[in-house]
Design a protein around this nucleic acid. Structure first.
Length: 108
DNA sequence: ATAAACTTACGTCAATAACT
DNA sequence: AGTTATTGACGTAAGTTTAT
């Protein structure tokens, strides 16, 4: 199965193209008192996790686009090289034929 | 006209290579 | 060792071609 869940709980019934948020997100309206002395309430942790995930997805999205662009270019390059070599080959075959011909007629 | 088959581009995940 | 970048594999949507 390709659609395996990631670190945020495998929800097999959710289409892959939907953006999932970490399950650590608290229900609407629930406000936790920030633990005294720290800036790391569960909410803040969850928000930070979401922010990190979205940033990661954004970066990877762009990386994937670039990767495909490079691959396409590479393939185009190869195809071009094939065309060039095919032409060279054709020319060489013609040349060989001509030389053989010449040699034959000389031999008579 | 349209249903089915094929193509193209995309976003995501996971593995791993490259970097610090 | 932890973090970030790269890329193959997969599923999806939209576009195009082909057969009826």
């Amino acid at each position: 199965m390709a659609v395996t869940g990631d670190e945020t709980a495998a929800t097999g019934d959710m289409p892959a193209y939907q953006i999932r948020t970490p399950t650590t997100t608290l229900p609407q309206g629930v406000v936790m008192a920030a633990s005294p002395g720290t800036l790391h309430s569960p909410q803040q942790m969850a928000e930070e996790a979401t922010r990190k995930r979205e940033l990661r997805l954004l970066k990877n999205r762009e990386a994937a686009r670039e990767c495909r662009r490079k691959k396409k270019e590479y393939v185009k390059c190869l195809e071009n090289r094939v065309a060039v070599l095919e032409n060279q080959n054709k020319t060489l075959i013609e040349e060989l034929k001509a030389l053989k011909d010449l040699y034959c007629h000389k031999a008579e």
